[in-house]
Each structure stands twice: as C-alpha cells, then as structure tokens.
Design a binder for these strands. Structure first.
Lengths: 128, 128, 128, 128
DNA sequence: GTGGTCTAGACCACC
DNA sequence: GTGGTCTAGACCACG
C-alpha cells in the first residue's frame, strides 16, 4: 500500500508519486481504477490534501492519471501514451550519474545486474 | 575538463561534484593529485568560492578528497575507502526509482542495457 | 448522435452543449424540432437529469433553445437571434488565446488554415 | 506589461501564463531574460507568491521557462522545443469548438479572418 | 537574495 | 460527495 516516510528528505509528493507508479507497474492499481479521493488519501497518509493534489496533478501531467472534476481521479491506460523523448533523455542522464556513484562505491557490474533482476521481478517485469 | 552548465536546473555544487567524480573514474584526475584550490577553481568556473567549497566538503565527506591544512586538497586512493553500506542502500533505492521511471517511459531492458554499455565504456570500465 | 465522453476532463454539461450546437450547425437538428425531454436525454446518455437540465438552461440562455411549459424544449430559429456583442467579444478573446498557444506550439498560419477548412466543411459551412 | 483582471472568472495563474506567453511572442520578453522573481511579480500584481509560482511552474513544464533554485527563473529559447503533438490535438479540438461558437454567433469567415490578421499582427507574426 | 515544500483553511464549480 | 483556486505563513535549500 502507498505509504510515506516522514523522516525522508524526499518531498512527500514525490514519494507519493513514486509509490503510485510502482503500484501501477505491479498491477496493484489498474487502468480505469479510481484513485482514492484527494481528501481520503490525505487522511490515510496523514498529510495535507494540497500535497496529495500536487502529486495527482503531476501524474496527470505525465499522462498516468486523469482527473474529472466532481467525479474523481482515475488511472489511465499506459498504452495510449507516446514515448516522451525529453524525459527519456533526462532519465539517461540520471542513469549515468547513478553509474558514476556506483563506480565510487565500488559496486561491480555483476552487483548492479543482481539489483536489476531483483527490481525487475518486484515490479512485475518492466516491459509487459 | 570540469565544467558547469549555468542553465541547468541542477545545483552548481552537485554538478561540480559529479564532474570531479567522473574525471576520477576516467583517470583524468588520479589518486594523489592535488586539486585546484577553491579560489582557483571558482575563478575558472566563474562561480562563488563558497559553492566550490561546498562541493569539496561533500567529496571529503565521501572519502574521495582529503584536505591538508596549509597544503591543499588531494585525491585519495579509491582503494583506501571501505564500502559505505548506507550510501549503497541509497543508491539501490535510486536505482529502483530509475527502473520505475523506465517502466512508465516504456523503455525496454534491452535499451537500458545499451545505456549501461555506453556509459560503462565512457567511464572507463566501472570497477577497475 | 449526441454523445458524451465520460473520461474526458471536460464537464458533461459542456460536452452536451457543444454536441447539441454542432448538430444544429450540421442541420441534424433543425429549427422547430423538439428536443428529447430532460429525462429521456439523461437516460440515453446515462447521466444525471440535473446535468442535462443545466445544459438545456445554458442553451436557453443563449437563445438557442426555448422551453414551453407543459410542451417541451424546442430549437429556435437561428435567425431570430440578434448578435450578442458581449459573447462575441469573449469569443474574440478566446481566439486570441488560441493564437498565442498556436504560436508557442509552432503551428504555422497555413496549418491553422487547413484546420479551418476541415472544420468548416465538417460543420456544414459556418454561416449558412 | 503583464497584468491581471481580478474580476475575470479566469484563474489568476492562467491569466498570468497567457500574459507571459503573449509578451514572449511579441518579443517584449526574450530568450535568456530573467523573469521577475516570484515575490517581486506577486508584489506587482498584488497576488500571492504561490499563485505566481504555480504559473511559473506550468510554464517551466511547457518548456517555456527554466528555473534555477537560488538564481531565478529564465526564459528559454523557443527554438529548442519539439512539437508537442498531444497539446496540438487539444488545441485543434479547442479550435473546432471556437468555430461552433462562431457559427452560433453568426460570425462570418470573413470576420474571423479579420480577427486573425489583427491578432497575428499584434503578436508579431505568429511563426517568426 | 532566489525558488521549493508543506500546512491550514476558505471559497467555488461539477455531479 | 468530487477536484480546483487562492491566500497566508512557516521552514528549508541554493548562491
């Protein structure tokens, strides 16, 4: 279930976004599903509705959720989104930085591969 | 050469840290080498000495640089450092987030592997 | 036929209004025709009667429909209405905004013109 | 100069966004220029800094502005953005709605063209 | 000085 | 009930 670590220095809304994205990849939340209402989610996570709202808005912007005023917020089909090359470039950059870090932490490529297999399984196979 | 992109939204000090780490991995800067003084580096990069200072401090904290009073700042041997399990955990977490992003951007494992090979080569083989 | 997209972020009543206006321009619905009753329309579109009612009210307000108590709701003749300068000004403003957007999306005047021809045809010639 | 109509039912932040986009098209604000700081803009427009912030964030999301923490918010070059087909489709839809409105307001194609010429000039030629 | 995050609470539009 | 807008004010990170 979505949860927030209040002691992390990562912003709440980013944690929530990540958490929701994971659940979608895992199939816990499926296309067409209605998300918890902003107020309900805020209550459960003990945070301010505005913060939840921000997370939902970002996800809507990324074509992952769709929100209909007066009705609620829903999960979109992951299929009908096109590749966003700009964001892919950003991810690539982030990946490089991660490898730089790995190099300095003396992590071998084998170890990285172990991580990959682990997470890929955890996320239900990354490209279903 | 170490350089800073003034129009990036990434903080200067983080860019500088990353840049130095890359050069160390590539062997452009080697263990024992003396770093440019804070003032000198600041002058070359047209940035505030405080910013350079912050970057050096972080790198010292990560056991990558060492400052000797009155002498200057030097690159440590990468061998001297023990595996920092806390930071490795953080990196692992970051790696997972990256895979979540990749999943939503519809990037295949093959594509990720291509990236890996590319960057590994660029960084001179990640675990020399 | 009038239809509603339940996954659009556009409010139902606005979709309905637009849909009716289109059919009138296309001649599918003609002056003097009786509209479906609120309840009937609501049943067909699987929506709340209040929502249909709101749409009809707006159209009445815009001099496009007229409701006669005990008889029903009818389409007015488009000739009967005088130019509503206030609404024309609003439309003009909206048109300007559209051009600003177009400019930032790098849409050429030629492309805009293509759109115009396409839609004009689809709507049956805009000023019959 | 950017200004806000406090009696309009259009949200402040949308008015601000539009206003900024216009000035960029007109060349009043140019690529590389620094925007007024959030606080400064808020003071001038007599609104809350959060509202200005929201407008800037939307524009950053649309690749029109770039913001660097601790430095400020800057205008990006309009050249280095690719066509966003999704937003273009939305605009097309909006254009169609506008023509439907125009039809009901008895606006002739000639009149629409007059508007186009007027605004195109006002915005400095839409596709420079 | 700059922008970013978060909270608390008010008011409005849609269904 | 739902989400969207706006305000006021606190606290933090970057340069």
């Amino acid at each position: 279930m979505v949860s927030i670590n209040k002691t992390s220095n990562k912003p709440y809304y980013e944690q929530l976004i990540l958490s929701i994205k994971e659940e979608i990849l895992q199939g816990v939340i499926r296309p067409g599903d209605q998300m918890l209402s902003i107020r309900e989610m805020a209550k459960r996570l003990l945070m301010n509705p505005n913060t939840v709202s921000k997370a939902y808005q970002v996800l809507e912007n990324e074509q992952i959720l769709i929100t209909i005023k007066g009705k609620g917020t829903f999960v979109k089909s992951i299929e009908d989104t096109s590749r966003d090359e700009r964001r892919i470039q950003e991810l690539k950059e982030k990946f490089k930085e991660l490898l730089v870090e790995a190099g300095h932490l003396k992590i071998s490529p084998q170890e990285l591969n172990t991580w990959f297999v682990l997470f890929d399984k955890e996320l239900g196979g990354i490209d279903k």
